[in-house]
Computed example of a mutant assay.
Amino acid sequence: MSTLPNELLIIDDDPDRLMTLAACAEFVGIEVQGYDFVTWLQQAKGADLSRVALVCLGESNLPLALSKLLAQFNLDGRDIPKLLLVDWPELNSAQYARSHVLGQLSEPFQMADLLDRLHQSQRLLSELVTKPVMADFDGFVGRSAPIEQIRQLMTQVAPRDISVMITGESGTGKEVVARCLHNSSPRAPGPFVPVNCGAIPPDLLESELFGHEKGA
């Protein structure tokens, strides 16, 4: 039987809070990775998150896009649970659930509270490992094998901050897939803007999509 992840990843630009939480975790036998946000962003792509059970997000001095930050903690379509050390106003209640945010841990830190959150995170990760997580995309119907394959691909890409190209014959539901992906992504609070490129003259397509300077 595989061992559950048991590491804490702390990212915080407040060094005192980072060291206090790290000391609290290490005292009860929890291994810790600690970074400020600049260092984390420099090392994120090469970081080994396979043993991380819980990500603690503190205060950032950088103008970060929260959706991009949260997408970094997604492993093969499964989000590592997160715990906030400060209030992140950009995060609404829907994003809390979608991004597996367990809540907020405030100072002074209590070891019992930290252990409870870690065990909660491990239970969630165990559930994600033992059963496949398939998103329920509203408006995307059907249970055939090809539809289930598409739904599985959608589940993998929806939480990620990446570009997705959807191909298919006319009338096969490309816009339905695009809308479902948008509604299940970190960008869901923003507008979904479909554009019918076939209705735009070729000489105007570039300026319509990317804009143009007045008089150009």
Rank of each mutant, 00 (worst) to 15 (best):
L91C: 10
Y96M: 12
H100V: 07
F140W: 09
L125C: 04
R78G: 04
D16I: 15
Y35K: 00
T167N: 11
A216W: 03
D48L: 05
L4T: 05
Y35D: 07
E107F: 14
G171H: 00
A47S: 10
L114E: 01
A97C: 07
I30W: 14
G58H: 09
R123S: 15
T20R: 14
F137N: 04
G198L: 03
L66R: 13
T3D: 13
W40H: 05
I162K: 11
L9A: 03
R160V: 01
D13Q: 05
D113V: 13
S93T: 11
I147T: 08
F140P: 03
L66T: 14
L124C: 10
S163T: 10
D116T: 08
F210I: 04
P202W: 08
G77S: 03
R160A: 06
A188C: 07
M111T: 08
H212S: 01
C56P: 01
F137E: 00
M134R: 11
E90Y: 01
F109V: 05
V193M: 08
E7T: 07
D161Q: 09
E148V: 11
D16Q: 15
Q33H: 15
Q72C: 09
P186C: 00
K174I: 00
G171D: 00
E175W: 03
F37Y: 15
G103R: 02
P191D: 15
Q156V: 11
L128Q: 10
P189T: 02
I162A: 12
L125K: 00
V32D: 05
E26K: 07
D136R: 15
I162G: 08
D203Q: 12
E7Y: 13
C180E: 03
P189N: 09
L18F: 09
S184R: 13
S170C: 02
L83A: 04
A94C: 11
C56M: 10
G211V: 05
D16E: 14
V101Q: 01
Q42W: 13
A71S: 14
L85W: 09
H119C: 11
F27N: 14
V55N: 02
L9I: 08
G171K: 04
R151H: 00
D79F: 12
A65N: 15
F140C: 05
D76Q: 15
D79G: 10
A135W: 12
L62A: 05
G77L: 02
L75H: 12
L62N: 06
L84G: 05
S185R: 13
P108Q: 06
A199S: 08
S93K: 11
Q95N: 09
M1K: 10
A178M: 04
A53V: 09
C180V: 06
D12Y: 10
V52G: 04
L102D: 06
P186D: 07
T167Y: 15
L41E: 10
R98C: 02
F192D: 01
E148D: 13
A65S: 15
L118S: 00
P186N: 04
A145I: 08
C24F: 14
K174H: 05
S170K: 06
C197W: 00
M19N: 13
I166E: 02
D87F: 06
A47Y: 08
V52Q: 06
L115I: 15
C56T: 04
T39W: 09
R78A: 14
